[in-house]
């Protein structure tokens, strides 16, 4: 009597079986999977609509098994607002990078969050512009070398890197904000809980939810995937502390 083989980890239904264009070791792929797993576990695939940004994840719709909209650079929160207002019954999420969300899209994310739009934003912070080949982003760290700050970011000239969830948490409107990371298995496991919580808040029609995910960019950081996870640990965690920044409907929430 042979013991039946059981699969205990496999590709989520909400993810297509397509080899992504992301660079080897780029943690976009991990974040895609976390979102897809949460959508599967909550049974939301058939009512989910993602909004892709402009950036490395502009092709996200090739990797998700859900309907998608493709937004102009920085405008995903506005598209999500327009869609969700007409279809509050559907699950809407935007997936954006740091250049998309903080740089060109700052106005859109601030106001969507402040209006308390009931969609979820997955905000990937890898401290650089990936798709265009490694330029300085609003989240690039002091002294970090990129193709547009080749001598290292000079805060006197460019100002300081922006801590987005802290910035958003200053808004009075109730919302859920957490920063997580995916640079190690332990962090990935914890990150999934935050993604799940965000989609739960949307599903319960409670509030706007945003999860900032610290992510690596081996190619443009000029490091191997493994070195990139170490660099993130040593440099980004201190400047971008992980944890819940605002959880208006949580136990200790401000509601």
């Amino acid at each position: 009597m042979s013991i039946k083989e059981k699969t205990i980890f496999a590709r989520p239904d909400s993810m297509t079986d397509v080899v992504t264009h992301y660079c080897p070791g780029c943690t976009h792929g991990v974040i895609h999977r976390l979102v897809a797993e949460v959508i599967d576990e909550m049974g939301l695939r058939e009512q989910a609509v993602g909004v892709a940004p402009v950036g490395c994840s502009v092709l996200a719709y090739n990797y998700f098994n859900t309907d998608f909209l493709e937004a102009p650079h920085g405008r995903a929160p506005a598209l999500a607002t327009g869609f969700k207002r007409l279809r509050p019954d559907m699950t809407v999420f935007t997936y954006q990078g740091d250049g998309d969300l903080i740089s060109i899209g700052m106005s859109e994310i601030m106001h969507a969050a402040n209006r308390g739009e009931k969609f979820t934003t997955i905000f990937v912070n890898n401290a650089i512009y990936g798709m265009t080949g490694g330029q300085m982003a609003p989240t690039t760290l002091q002294g970090q070398i990129t193709s547009t700050c080749p001598a290292g970011r000079d805060l006197d000239k460019t100002g300081h890197p922006i801590r987005m969830v802290e910035l958003l948490s200053g808004l009075v409107t109730p919302m859920y904000l957490e920063r997580v990371s995916v640079h190690s298995p332990r962090h990935i496991i914890q990150a999934k809980k935050a993604v799940r919580k965000a989609f739960e808040y949307q599903n319960a029609n409670k509030c706007f939810s945003l999860v900032e995910v610290l992510s690596t960019c081996p190619t443009n950081w000029g490091q191997t995937p493994e070195e990139a996870t170490d660099w993130l640990e040593k440099n980004m965690l201190s400047y971008y502390p992980l944890g819940v920044k605002k959880d208006s409907f949580g136990e200790g929430g401000d509601r």
Partner: peptide, 18 residues
């Protein structure tokens, strides 16, 4: 009422997609 005409036009894109 959106935060700018730019945002409003993009809300329109999202809404039109429905």
């Amino acid at each position: 009422q959106g935060e700018s005409e730019l945002a409003v036009a993009n809300m329109l894109f999202g809404a039109a997609a429905t």
